[in-house]
């Protein structure tokens, strides 16, 4: 078992990176690896629990919830969260923590591989 750190910098719905993030993280977890993620810039929007969409497609936040259930540790950049009016992440799903760049630094220190998306 090894540890994968992933930094995601894009939000849901606009670019494909959140889907790559979800697929890669899930595949790593399914293989028994540890996954730690840092949500930076617009990526913090992935954790908001009130997402809705008119068609029956998997919501980004549901995919993130599944990752957390499988053991992924997710940290959102606090400056990015507050800058977007997300008030310390009070509307985030359970399991998404709000932190700072020192958390990214520790994630980097502890990782075997680092992916940036």
């Amino acid at each position: 078992m090894a540890r994968m750190a992933i930094m995601l910098t894009e939000g849901p719905w606009q670019t494909e990176n959140y889907e790559i993030f979800a697929c890669l993280a899930e595949a790593a977890l399914d293989k028994g690896h540890e996954v730690e993620a840092f949500w930076y810039i617009d990526a913090v929007y992935n954790g908001i629990k009130h997402q809705k969409f008119p068609e029956d497609v998997p919501l980004p936040v549901e995919r993130m919830k599944k990752l957390i259930e499988k053991g992924a540790k997710i940290m959102a950049c606090g400056i990015c969260v507050n800058a977007r009016g997300l008030e310390k992440g009070k509307e985030f799903i359970d399991g998404v923590r709000v932190g700072g760049l020192p958390d990214l630094a520790d994630m980097v220190s502890d990782a075997d591989v680092f992916i940036s998306l």
Binding site: M4, L24, D30, K31, V113
Partner: peptide, 8 residues
């Protein structure tokens, strides 16, 4: 699944 192996 194969991508995970490749990145490690």
């Amino acid at each position: 699944a194969e991508l995970v192996d490749l990145v490690f």
